[in-house]
Every structure is written in structure tokens, then in C-alpha cells.
Design a protein around this nucleic acid. Sequence first.
DNA 1: AAAAAGTGTATACGATGTAAACAGTATACC
DNA 2: GGTATACTGTTTACATCGTATACACTTTTT
Lengths: 272, 272
Amino acid sequence: MEQMRDGNNGDGLNEEALEKLPNGAKLGWGLVKPSTRGPKGELSVKKIVDAAVALADRDGLAAVSMSRVAASLGFTTMSLYRYIASKDDLLMLMYDSVSELELPERKDGDWRAEMRAYVWACVEVFVKHPWFGDIPVTSIPIMPNTLKIIDWMLGTMRTFPLNEHEKMSILLLLSSYSRSVGLINRDFGQALKAGANPDTFNGLEYSAALKQLVKPDSYPHLYPIVMSGTYAGENEQTSTVGDDFDFGLERILDGVQHYLDTRKAPGPGLGQ
Amino acid sequence: MEQMRDGNNGDGLNEEALEKLPNGAKLGWGLVKPSTRGPKGELSVKKIVDAAVALADRDGLAAVSMSRVAASLGFTTMSLYRYIASKDDLLMLMYDSVSELELPERKDGDWRAEMRAYVWACVEVFVKHPWFGDIPVTSIPIMPNTLKIIDWMLGTMRTFPLNEHEKMSILLLLSSYSRSVGLINRDFGQALKAGANPDTFNGLEYSAALKQLVKPDSYPHLYPIVMSGTYAGENEQTSTVGDDFDFGLERILDGVQHYLDTRKAPGPGLGQ
DNA sequence: AAAAAGTGTATACGATGTAAACAGTATACC
DNA sequence: GGTATACTGTTTACATCGTATACACTTTTT
């Protein structure tokens, strides 16, 4: 694959800035145009990413090695490097690939409903692709599909009397909560799938041990919670853990609501 | 090091349950008693963990390999395995090691102040030990120092008219926010330290590229934020990014406050 | 003195990510 | 058409990783 050369390509693009992007990002944005010369590739970036995603869905992120991805496609390890410069770039593309969501419907001004839909759509990604949360986050989002989701959420806050910083802060708040909830939900789902007995469930495995280690003198406030089984989640008789997380989300939304109530017009705010 | 045998050791401990803990957790809780037989070890778990932490502080988590940790102590790679069963266990111990915080002072009933102190104490760990956020979280917290922090926060909520589930949900909310903020603050701090020019700062590197890629048709709501430089953090003229994150935290606290206001006594709540 | 348990070391193995050199093939230009 | 060029997938090679195993040695218990 040939990369674009310096100069202007007619779209008013400044190549120098684009050149700084990680290779994976360049691929995601379609900035790498296929050349006409040479044999047509039998492989493609999409095929590789799809194979890697399938592999990770089945065996986890640790199972994604360049050699295994290549083998699952019937090629040699090194052939992948003709399309994707490094494994980090492959991970970026996997990330973006599963971030291609069907965005939630607009709820016609009901921003709370839209924020709930946003959070749960994000959580669903973690559950459907358990490896998603294992990919290290190394910078602000720069991949096209991720930015699509951010854009959607900003649309929800379109009419909020807030400045840009405030909106971004709320977005950060929601996405950080999504991430945490997504990770826990994922672990729950995986334990259900893997363990025949529900006792193999995440903290439950350690519950008995903690009941012996967490002494009332050292951990006066945690002690009753561990002993009642709440800490390790023993009392979750339903398989829908979701209820618990709705709680935190509603607190966040209450906080946003409260802020909007006390803030009728956009002001300077946030020290800029 | 000899591990305890099955049976009762006089403290009323059921060994079977403790045996299920990861090796790192057993070491953290002091469940592995040194034996008297054989030569005294020149190494120790503490020395190894301290060396690993020092290495990670200097060169990042990727630089922590068993061989490098051993070399920094003047021993061979395999000598470490006499003390710590696997690298995962070492990571657990590193995690717990830097979680040994001096807990914030009690603010005498001002729970908002205590929650702020909690969040910022957690964030500080990410900043002081940039690798902290790179350690994968694989279960609910089970290490002694981490539980100490949880206990402290539960102490803050001591008098809240909430049930255990609700308190744990609030804790989850706060710690998830801490984590996100910690990660971002960490990246900021690292960029400041590494890059001579402030342009090397995290998103800033990509800012110019995003301004070309984020088109108003596809990203109508994100577009103005990218163009103004807010998205990539161009407008942060201060080195204290903290201001931005205080905002989200205050929203969370508002949400908690609001919930307390509407809830004067503990009820059934949360479907249990 | 012998047995037992624990020490640090040396060697070895299979994976990993990827650099480098290679022969083959399809296109672009003379 | 021929030929240079650019791209293909492969082969080989290397350093590094985590860790299993076997070893010789040292200290304590019996």
C-alpha cells in the first residue's frame, strides 16, 4: 500500500499533520490509497481485522498474535505486515471496528433517555466483545467510529446552556462510567458462560476467603458488607446485574440535571 | 517459602477458602509464613516488589520483565520465582504496594470534602506511578491496601440512609471516575515530562490532523469543538488540568446529594 | 551424621513481535 | 513489446519474553 505524498491532494489536506497520525488511524480514516501497480493483494486490511476480531471474540485478546491471525486466514505471519505496520495498529483497527455502532434513536429532546441509551450502547460493546476492555487506551479518541459516537452524544447536549469544556467534561463522565460498568458486566457475562457452577463467578470465588481476612478492627466499615455477601455479589439472584448500574447512572444524570437547573446561560466557566 | 497446610491454624481460618486466592493475594495478606529450614534468603518479596516498582516508575510497565527486575537486584531471573510464583502475582503486589496510601483526614461530617479527597488521592497514585493504570484489573479488589481505601470511603458514608448496595454503587461511581481522571492526568504529566515542546502533548499531536478529518457533514456537533481546539486540549494554558475534572466530580456529588435529599431512610431499593 | 527443606543458578523451550532478504508477479512507461 | 518499478507473500533470523526443570549448595531439624 502506498501512502500519500507530501503536498496538497486537492481536498485542502495538509499532509504533514496527517502524517503524524498512527498508522492504524490512517488506515481507519481511509488515508492509505491502494496502488495500482503490482499484484492485487489476496489479503486486505478488512479481512485481517475481521479475522483478528473473530479470534479475540472466541479466545480473548491474548490469543491475538500476528501468527495466529495469519494462520486463521491461511497465510504466513509476515504477510500481515504488508497491510498493517504493527500489532498496535491492528489493535486500533479492531477497536474501531467494533465501535461501528448503530447509534441509538433520538429520543426527541429527552436527554436523559438519550444518555441512558448512550451508556448502554457502550456497555454492550464490552459484553459482545469481551476483549474490548483489554485494549490499552493511549490517547484521546481519534478513530472515525469512536468520534461518531462522541458526535452523537454532543448532539444530545446540543441545546444545553453549557460551554464546550463543560460538555466534554460530561462526556468524559459518562464514558468513564460506561467503561467501568462495561468491564464488570463483561466479567459477569464471561463467568456465566464459562463456569458451569455459578460459584465460579468473579468475586464469589474469593468471598469465603475475604470473610476470614477482613477483620472488624482493621476494616470496620467494610466488614459488615463482606460478611453479608454484598461485597462479592453473593446476593445477586438475578442474572441481570444491570439494575445495580442503573443506580449510579441515575445519580450522574441527577447531577447533570441539577447543574443545568442552576445554570441558565453559558458563562465563562472552567477557567478558560 | 512454605505455605500453610490444610486444617485450622488456631485463628479460626478455613484454609480451603484461602487456598483459592491468587498467590499474590496470599503474599499481600501475609499468609505465607517463612520457613526456618534451609538457608536464609538474600532476596525478599518486598525487595523484589520495590525493585519492580522502581523499574516501572523509571521506564514504564513494559520494562518490567522478570529478567530486568532480577538484574537490577543483582540476581538471576529464576531466583525471583523462589519468592513470587508468577509475573501476574508480581503485578498484584506492585499494585498493592503503591495503594498503601496515607488516608485523607476525616473532614468531620463533610462527606463532599471527604469524597473529593478520596478521588484526588486515587488520582495521585496514577500520576506518581504512571504504570499503575496499565495493570489489568481482573477481579473485584481483594488486596489489603485497596480494601483499606474502600473501607475509608465506606466510613464517609457511614451515616447515609442507604443500603449496602447503594453504598457500593456510589463507591463504584467514584472509583471509576478516579480511574478515568487518573489516566488522563497521568498522560498529561508524562507528556509534560517527556516533550520539550508542549506541542508533543497527547491529543495536541493529533489536533491538526483532526481538524482536517472531522468534517461538518459527518460530525456536525463535534466539528466546532475540534476546530476551536477544545477537543484536543489546546486551550489548557495552565499546567493544572485538574480544574476540568473537578467539574465532573461536582456533578457526581450533586447527584449523590440529590439522592440523599429524596431518600430519608434506607428502603428495599435496587431489587434485592 | 543424616535427612529435609530451601537457596540461587544454568540450561532449555516455545512464543512473541518484527527486521531483512528473497523470488515472483502485475502494472506503468518507453 | 520490453523493461523498470512497485507490490506481493515467504523464508529465515533474532532478541526477548515467561517459566519448567534439574542441579549443586547451604542451613536447620532429627
